[in-house]
Design a protein around this nucleic acid. Structure first.
Lengths: 230, 230
DNA sequence: GTAAATTTTTACGATTTTTTAACGGCCCGC
DNA sequence: GCGGGCCGTTAAAAAATCGTAAAAATTTAC
């Protein structure tokens, strides 16, 4: 994961400074807002992984900030508050906050709670990428890293698989030799065009019924290759 | 949603009684355990929506209970503790807990935090959250930490067990060397690829009828390994 | 404190994959 | 028809990866 992005909505300069040092020091990218209105805008534009919001803001009530955020985003919200009253906690949590930390709080506790929040979103997004590709008898399960022709599984070497993946990503469109070389072998091998020829032969041999008359892995003479799409 | 099921692992009778009244009164179905060992079994059999665990248990350390649970389930865990030390909180949260409530706590706050936990699982899909795994002759009881081939129990060392657990968690999918190293040996050992080779040989020797021709622990050359799934 | 078990290192042969090289066919301009 | 790019195929040499055993270091159990 790249550095997690955090939006902090907090009016007290001392706490902002404290969290700025703590969080940036731990590899988080921090964006700050000092009012509820600013905070809402900031969350909208930064698309953060976590939002930390203080309840005692000068303009809008912190609870309202949470409600407004929950109208359109499921980003984890951690509430920071001087009011340690139980009623406040319940109100904030029921408004849509995921956690509530009372001031004064320790840096390591807050960071641990941020890690918990990130853990939740990490799992959630992982379900959606059930990527699969299919054309004719050829089927590819990107998640399991498996390739089938009919119901026979075909084993591919790392380079073969990467090459096929690249073609799938641009399915139906022409991919030039240059592009394939750059994406599969890396930008330092863009002059070794014969690699592609050799591996395309391997793939056809493994995937095509008649390698000499390919149905899926098509040659675009003088340009590159194209993977057939429905 | 039908009434949410809660497992409470707590040895103090007063707190148990207090929560029994509170939670059953609010429509939760509560199951209680007074020791860590009991608690693990209870979670395994009741498949609860939330687990509440006290850190100061008579037998196992509460932190270990969390770790043991996290070996096979993603159920939300709320920690209850008299120790309000920041170090304890961080340890518990990093061990896999989702929330930490210090005693003394209010009923409504705890219930609000349970609601937050339930909100999280509501969105997530009910994926393989089972305490058992089986493929062919190979059977694994994650709850009891036992592994069987046929009806012969096989003893595994801690690392062997963790490696197998990791493969089980991604059963059917390829797990890269990097992933295995990170999840079993920790992120600081991701360059010692030979560890995986050595231990995969150990596991095959113990679990496969023909270690040289594995049926379950499959090699994905150049990428990693895969545990066969039905 | 000693013995046993487990983990970490190391080494080497076997296997798989990648790279390199060679050859033949096809299209096209000349 | 002749030669020169392109492309596909095949086979080999070279490199990387994998499986295995066994020794050394460390941890755990008694």
């Amino acid at each position: 994961m790249p550095d997690p992005v955090v939006v902090l909505i907090e009016d007290e300069p001392q706490i902002r400074r404290f969290l700025r040092v703590t969080l940036t020091g731990q590899g988080y990218r921090l964006f700050e807002a000092t009012t509820g209105a600013d905070g809402l805008v900031e969350v909208g534009s930064r698309q953060p992984d976590v939002v930390i919001v203080d309840l005692g803001l000068p303009d809008i009530d912190g609870i309202d900030v949470i409600r407004r955020l929950r109208e359109w985003t499921a980003v984890p919200i951690i509430v920071l508050s001087a009011r340690g009253q139980e009623r406040d906690k319940v109100t904030a949590l029921d408004a849509g906050a995921d956690d509530y930390v009372s001031k004064p709080f320790g840096a390591s506790e807050l960071v641990a709670r941020i890690r918990v929040a990130l853990r939740h979103t990490a799992g959630a997004s992982h379900e959606a990428d059930d990527a699969a590709f299919k054309v004719g008898e050829l089927r590819m399960d990107l998640l399991r890293r498996q390739v089938f022709v009919g119901d026979r599984e075909v084993r591919l070497t790392p380079i073969e698989y990467k090459l096929l993946t690249t073609l799938v990503r641009h399915a139906g469109k022409v991919v030039t030799h240059q592009q394939l070389l750059r994406e599969v072998w890396g930008p330092t091998h863009t002059d070794q065009a014969h690699y592609v020829r050799v591996y395309m032969a391997h793939l056809r041999h493994k995937l095509e019924a008649e390698p000499a008359r390919p149905r899926y892995l098509l040659t675009e003479p003088g340009v590159g290759y194209r993977l057939a799409a429905d």
